[in-house]
Amino acid sequence: MRIAFFAPHKPIDHPLPSGDLIIGKTLHDFLRSQGHELLIASHFRLRHITNKPLKWPTLYLEFKNTLKRAEKFNPDIWLTYHSYYKSPDLLGPYISEKLGIPYVIYQGVFATKYRRNYKTWAGYMSNKHALLHADHVFANKDIDFHNLSRIILPEKLSRTYPGIEPDNFNYCPQGAEEVRNRYELNGKKVILSTAMLREDVKAESITDLIDAFAPIAAKKPETKLLIAGDGEARPRLENLAAEKAGDQIIFLGRVKQEELYKYYSAANFFAYPGINEALGMVYLEAQCAGLPVVAYSTRGPKEAVIHSETGLLSPERDIAAMSANLIRLLEDESLRKQMSEAAPKHIRNNFDLNKNLQDVEHKLSSISHWR
């Protein structure tokens, strides 16, 4: 297949990492690895474009240039990654129609609540237009699949699942030893967390985690909480951590994706509350490395973690319940072992990236033959 690929929310070569970016790049790279030709049709970012009229002339010029690129490439199919009200696809529906090729959205998102706010109405309507004009839509979250089924015919909608390459996150004793020696963690219980430390729900989640860990720090001085990640909220969170738990919380800074498996391997379990979190790739990575997970029972963690089998989930913003789950896993070695054995199996059975993307590839191939 010759595929015109477009990511309106954030181009896949964007310098700032995120879970969405990883999913989009992984989809692109997998299709290319299978021998398909891909053209990144546009690098133009459509985030909040409907509320930025000064950018509309530039968008029009980008539309004309993208149409020329696509015509020259002569694709069999247009594939958009992640269209929703904040970043509706304003290129794919029109260009695919002009070229007479199928139009597909991977990770479509739809929620009617955004039609009731004048600030989000235009984005909502633009996104709905793209979804209704798609020949097929893939949803990789339960809530998205449910919402999309209200406007998309069953034969045009597929429930798919994101994933990771399990072999990249296997437990590594050498990596564990390296990290434990570097931070003098031998003989200590280690909880790992990782997040972008920006001033939004990410920082709120880490704040809740620090608050949940604080009483544990006083009772169990040989326990350490490691937090990987960086961002503008880091200085404030470091000050809060020092105030609440002294030197028992260690901020690691940004850790390269290819090095994360060492840090997972060095920990006893993983904790990240996940306020307003989507699926959360870190939950998959941690479980693959054999780490039980402690999180809130919000929609993202619930899709990734099996409560009482591969982790412990508690109500959102219930700090005391999260703290109790942290203590339970610290003290119950038998439970940790049981979950450590179940977690990698869960990931390999349900979130093996290659298996899941092969299903997407087969569907794209069948759709491209409609041309």
Rank of each mutant, 00 (worst) to 15 (best):
L39D: 04
E258M: 05
Y118R: 11
D135Y: 07
K220V: 04
L353G: 03
H36S: 05
L260I: 13
S314W: 01
F169T: 08
P93F: 03
F138L: 03
A4W: 08
E178A: 07
T26F: 01
A286E: 01
L39S: 06
M281D: 01
G311V: 00
Y283Q: 01
P102N: 00
N186T: 06
K302Q: 13
W56V: 06
T160P: 05
K363N: 10
N349I: 04
S193P: 06
I227M: 04
N356C: 06
A266H: 02
F351P: 08
Y161W: 11
S368I: 09
K188H: 11
G274A: 06
I327R: 11
T58W: 09
P215W: 08
D76R: 04
K25T: 09
Y161G: 00
V282T: 15
V294P: 06
Q248V: 03
P17F: 07
T120F: 11
H28R: 13
T26M: 08
L225Y: 06
Y263I: 00
Y94V: 01
I367C: 10
L312W: 05
N170C: 11
T120E: 11
I319G: 07
L237E: 08
I40P: 02
F30I: 00
Y183T: 11
N276S: 10
V109I: 13
I151H: 02
D20Y: 10
D13Q: 13
L153Y: 06
I143P: 00
R45H: 04
F269R: 01
V179F: 08
T194S: 13
S18R: 13
V137T: 11
T80L: 04
M281P: 02
P292Y: 01
L197P: 03
W121L: 12
P292F: 02
K219V: 09
T160F: 13
F351K: 04
S340Y: 08
N74T: 07
E341R: 09
I275Q: 08
P301C: 01
Y81A: 01
L260F: 03
P344F: 15
E37N: 14
Y283G: 03
Y103C: 02
R336K: 08
P162Y: 15
A228N: 05
T120D: 13
R236N: 12
L153K: 12
R2N: 11
K86E: 13
K302D: 06
Q287L: 02
T207G: 05
H369E: 13
I250W: 05
L61E: 11
F6H: 07
E333K: 15
T298G: 12
M339I: 03
G24N: 02
